[in-house]
Every structure is written in C-alpha cells, then in structure tokens.
C-alpha cells in the first residue's frame, strides 16, 4: 500500500462500508436446481432426483450448497466510473447454512459491504472488498449467509 492510494481507499471505506444492496428475489425452481447440479457435475440424488430425495429425511429435492450463488445481488455497480481498478477476481467465499433451500422457495438476497482494504499482489496493487450476503426464505428464516471477498485490480 502506497501513501498515494490511502486517501482514495479511505474515501471508499467511508462511502461503501455498511452499504446494503437492494433486495434481490429468486424463486427457486426445480429445473434450475437440477441444471445447476448438472453444471457442477454433482450427481447427488438430493439435487437431481425427486423420487430418491423423497426417501431421505429432507422429504424431497433440495438445492446443493452453493446454489444460492445464482441469486445475484447487485454488488458495487455504482462504483465511481473513474474507479481505477477495473479488473475483478474472486478471492474466496465463506458459507454458513441454517435451513435447506427447496423448490418453490422464494429467497431474498441482500448484500452488505463489511470491509474494504488494499493489498499488494502479484498482479499489482489490489483492493479487497468483503461483502456478506444474507439469504432469507419466504418464512422469514435466514437459509444461509455468504461472506465473499472480491478483488479489484
């Protein structure tokens, strides 16, 4: 981190930390769950086969653990147009699960910025933006949370 970038980072932290995205609603469809499972090549009957899944304690198909990535919240699309770090990489993800996600569920995803910090990397100066997404189902239960680190460089 150079002294040149510090004020710019401080300004970013001030404007974005704590900021929440508008809620994004996703209706969970059985076909989408199955297509997702096929794309990740995960043949688990819980996310592929209703008849088999009914024999389990879940009583039917559920979504695979990372399925909620498909509920795409708006991130920081409103970053200033002159924001110098145009390129984007995913730095990592941390899930916590509370309730199964089932076909027919209506999931509301809200994304909140929790941290912004600079770091020098192999690809030059980088900015790490940490967000936490909360996925709430139609019963008001938090089904999962995901903390994600995106890297701008």
């Amino acid at each position: 981190m150079t002294t040149d970038t510090a004020p710019e980072i401080e300004a970013l932290r001030k404007s974005y930390i704590g900021k929440e995205s508008p809620p994004e609603v996703m209706e969970v469809e059985r076909g989408h769950i199955r297509a997702f499972a096929q794309a990740i090549e995960d043949p688990n009957p819980l996310w592929n086969n209703e008849a088999e899944a009914r024999k389990t304690r879940f009583g039917g198909m559920v979504a695979p653990p990372t399925f909620l990535r498909a509920a795409r919240t708006q991130g920081l699309e409103d970053l200033p147009p002159d924001f110098p770090y145009k390129r984007l990489l995913d730095g990592g993800s941390e899930w916590e699960y509370f309730e199964p996600v089932r076909p027919g569920d209506r999931i509301t995803a809200v994304n909140r910025v929790v941290d912004i910090y600079p770091r020098a990397g192999q690809l030059g100066p980088m900015i790490f933006i940490v967000t936490e997404t909360t996925y709430t189902n139609q019963f008001g239960q938090v089904a999962a949370t995901q903390k994600n680190t995106s890297i701008r460089y």
Binding site: I40, P65, E94
Partner: peptide, 23 residues
C-alpha cells in the same frame, strides 16, 4: 467451492448436514 461442497456432501450423505464451508 461447489467441488469442495460435493466432496463433503458425498462423504456425509443425506443424514449429515453441511453447516459451514469456506475457502
């Protein structure tokens, strides 16, 4: 992440529950 989730759900089966996963 999805691959790591599969590693774990294949292992624990339908009686197990994945509670946290980070990478």
């Amino acid at each position: 992440s999805a691959f790591l989730a599969q590693l774990l759900t294949d292992w624990i089966g339908p009686q197990g529950t994945l509670r946290k996963l980070g990478c």
